[in-house]
Amino acid sequence: MIVYATHKGGRYLPMEESLKEQPEGRRGLYVNLTNRCNCACTFCLRQMKKMAEQSSLWLKREPTVEEVEAELDGVPWEYVKEVVFCGFGEPTERLEALIALLRYVKGMHPDIPTRVNTNGLGELEHGRVFASEFAGILDTVSISLNASNAARYLALTRAKFGEKSYEAMLAFAQHCKPYVPNVVLTIVDKVEGPDEIEKCRKICADRGLTLRVRAYEDS
């Protein structure tokens, strides 16, 4: 599934089905670009969640930019409150496609907010700083902080780049600040306890960043 909406119970539905179940109100429109990820997080639903074929986020192949644009063109935009690039893979793995599609959404629907959910390791993946390319097309970047130190972060994420991943993720957040209005770091409730969450809150406060505690989804 390339374009979908989320519903209670951890369900993902095509927009047509979403509107049948919930005909009123605006909702987030999610865009799934890839299965690829440079982390293998211990708590990730990729490894724990079974899905019916018709509602699976696993892609049989990566869609082209043109194919994603075609799906977006068919969306009832009057029901969309935000466009979120987030699937079961890491969206910055397909950086050029991500940038192109953010431009497309903002060009067609400039008043609708855009968001990218990312592990923040795209700079390591691509070997360059690219945050400036988000200027004017991305409203919020949500980055998975996950832990208060590099060793704990690596134990949780099993990032392919090793312990240097942690500081690279924090550097990416700082690089985004001049170009993205809302830079948010996240940690998952129940994966980490209150003490660890408070340490993460201080890290964000010291860097002028926002921390959001995400609800753990185990189904």
Rank of each mutant, 00 (worst) to 15 (best):
Y4G: 02
H7M: 15
G9Y: 04
R11G: 03
R11Y: 09
Y12N: 10
P14S: 15
M15K: 12
E17F: 07
S18P: 05
K20L: 13
K20G: 04
E21V: 08
Q22I: 15
P23N: 11
E24S: 08
R26N: 08
L29S: 10
L29Y: 09
Y30M: 05
V31T: 02
T34Y: 01
T34A: 02
N35E: 01
R36K: 10
R36M: 11
N38L: 09
C39G: 06
C39Y: 06
C41Y: 04
C44P: 03
C44S: 05
L45V: 06
A52H: 09
A52K: 14
Q54F: 03
W58P: 01
W58S: 05
R61S: 04
T64E: 01
E66D: 11
V68E: 02
L72V: 07
L72Q: 02
V75N: 11
K81D: 14
V83K: 14
C86E: 14
G87N: 00
E90N: 05
P91H: 09
P91N: 10
T92E: 15
R94M: 12
R94H: 07
L95C: 12
L95T: 01
L95W: 04
A97F: 09
L98F: 09
A100H: 12
L101G: 11
V105I: 14
M108P: 02
M108N: 14
M108K: 15
P110Y: 01
P110K: 09
P113H: 08
T114V: 11
T114N: 11
T114W: 13
N119L: 07
G120M: 07
L121H: 09
G122E: 00
E123V: 10
E123D: 08
L124I: 01
E125G: 08
H126D: 03
H126G: 05
G127S: 03
R128Y: 00
R128P: 01
S132E: 14
A135F: 04
G136Q: 02
G136I: 01
G136P: 05
D139Q: 06
D139R: 05
V141I: 11
V141M: 01
V141E: 00
S144L: 06
S144C: 08
N146P: 06
A147M: 09
A147T: 09
N149K: 13
R152H: 11
Y153C: 10
Y153L: 12
A155H: 08
T157G: 02
R158Q: 14
K160I: 15
K164E: 15
E167K: 06
E167Q: 13
L170D: 04
F172N: 00
Q174W: 01
C176F: 03
V180S: 00
P181I: 11
P181K: 12
N182P: 02
N182G: 04
I187Q: 01
V188Q: 00
K190Y: 05
K190G: 07
K190M: 13
D195Q: 15
E196M: 15
E196P: 05
E198V: 00
K199W: 12
I203W: 12
C204T: 00
A205E: 15
D206N: 13
D206S: 11
R207L: 14
R207F: 03
G208H: 01
L209Y: 06
V213T: 02
S219E: 10
